[in-house]
């Protein structure tokens, strides 16, 4: 029982300063398996927190632990290889590469990714690449971008880029997926499908930490919610508790929530 409730990600007093701006002011929280929401007003430090967790920025203080190991200051690829993958708030598609190539890039530990293997093409090279290609096609189908498989990613619409980014992240078979506003700009039907998909994956054992501004989505899909405000964690709790918390209503939800 202890193992189950152990947090997979622990953020301990992380600080980040940009010149005079305090983006993260000693934020601490734990993430357990399942789906966790991260909410907070614009500029609260949510994206910066993602950067500090995934190694894209070195925190100026505090530490980050994944599955009991200190990953503070590790390179992004090292963090990713431990099983933490992230998406970006502004999609980072690879514009001159096709959607197919964007996706086929993602699976980890492909044999043909080493320089010598790309020359020698020995055992497993073709099988591995076939697998990567097949998975790329499957992912594209699941996220409804298979009709643009051979289009350069730079020609996709904003929503399609979001989908590509999500599909690509999931192809790395991560333990924990950090999604930075994955639903922004996606149409409602597709939004439902993505959320269903996240639910299915969560049931399969993937964990999610996702930033979202739509409180209804958070209420419906998250087991836990973390609220950030001015670089700190305002509170962490179950969705219902968060929604009715006075501090959260004041800082973020305003009059819209009952």
């Amino acid at each position: 029982m202890v193992a189950v409730s152990d947090p997979i990600l622990e953020v301990d007093g992380v600080e980040k300063y940009f010149g005079g701006i305090t983006a993260l002011d000693g934020a601490s929280f734990d993430v357990e398996s399942g789906i966790t929401g991260l909410i907070g007003p614009n500029g609260a430090g949510k994206s910066t927190m993602f950067d500090c967790i995934t190694g894209f920025r070195d925190p100026d203080g505090g530490s980050v632990w994944f599955r009991g190991e200190d990953v503070t200051g590790d390179s992004p690829s090292a963090v990713a290889n431990r099983g933490v993958v992230r998406t970006f708030q502004i999609p980072h598609e690879l514009p001159e590469m096709t959607v197919r190539e964007n996706l086929a890039l993602a699976p980890r530990d492909q044999r043909g990714e080493s320089l010598v293997a790309s020359w020698a093409r020995g055992d497993g090279y073709y099988e591995d690449e076939q697998r990567a290609q097949r998975r790329a096609v499957e992912a594209a189908e699941r996220f409804e971008i298979s009709h643009v498989l051979d289009t350069p990613a730079g020609e996709l619409s904003g929503g399609q880029r979001k989908l590509l980014e999500l599909a690509r992240a999931l192809l790395t078979e991560p333990d924990l997926v950090l999604l930075d506003e994955p639903l922004a700009g996606v149409n409602p039907t597709l939004e439902e499908r993505i959320l269903d998909h996240i639910q299915t994956l969560a049931a399969e054992g993937y964990s999610f930490l996702f930033i979202e501004h739509d409180i209804d989505v958070i209420m419906e899909h998250c087991q836990e919610v973390i609220v950030m405000h001015q670089g700190r964690v305002l509170m962490r709790g179950e969705p219902e508790a968060v929604r009715t918390d006075d501090r959260v209503v004041d800082a973020y939800l305003g009059g819209d929530a009952e």
């Binding site: 995934t54 894209f56 390179s75 992004p76 690829s77 990713a80 290889n81 993958v85 992230r86 970006f88 980072h92 598609e93 690879l94 514009p95 001159e96 590469m97 890039l105 993602a106 980890r108 690509r168 992240a169 790395t172």
Partner: peptide, 10 residues
């Protein structure tokens, strides 16, 4: 194209 992407993918 964008070095952050392959890094984020490991």
């Amino acid at each position: 194209e964008d070095e952050d992407v392959p890094e984020a993918l490991g």
